[in-house]
Amino acid sequence: MDKPEKKTNRRDFLFTASYTVGAVGVGAIIWPLIDQMNPDKAQQALATTEVDVSQVEPGKSITVLWRGKPVFLKRRTNEEIAEARSVALNDLPDPQKDEDRVKDGKDEWLVMLGVCTHLGCVPLSDKGDYNGWFCPCHGSHYDVSGRIRKGPAPKNMEIPKYEFVNSNIIKIG
């Protein structure tokens, strides 16, 4: 009992050790409680969709649901492709070449998420000032390549991961 200071140090160590173990314990139980809200296995299992596009005429498009979101599959005409490629990159808020938004050799097919990058509405096709899409919610205009041109949306409409299984079937996801 003649060394009170040393005793205090020992207690400090115990406090710090207890807080640390406590914090780790709290963290270990909080993470499962937070992570349970992330997409579950059933949601993740819906990750791919195959679409038969053989019936789509040039200039037309179809919309399919993938992971709860609409995907636009548009078969573009040569004029539309030419229009998309004539745009100067400087005119684009989110500069991206049309060539980078389609698969090589499949230039007529534009496959993209039909989700406005502003707040997630579904844009209307063949509307707006740029011959592409127009989002009715907050007035974003997209061009024929799905690139943002005017309005509050910050980015071009997203291109999902997809591949051509054969010339008629597109697999999204």
Partner: peptide
């Protein structure tokens, strides 16, 4: 959709937060 997408405006982690709120991809 619109209100939860407000969170996607947060830089870097916005998309993850939105997905977490949804518990799905929409």
């Amino acid at each position: 959709t619109v209100i939860t997408n407000l969170f996607s405006a947060i830089p870097l982690v916005g998309e993850s937060i939105t997905t977490w709120l949804w518990g799905a991809y929409s």
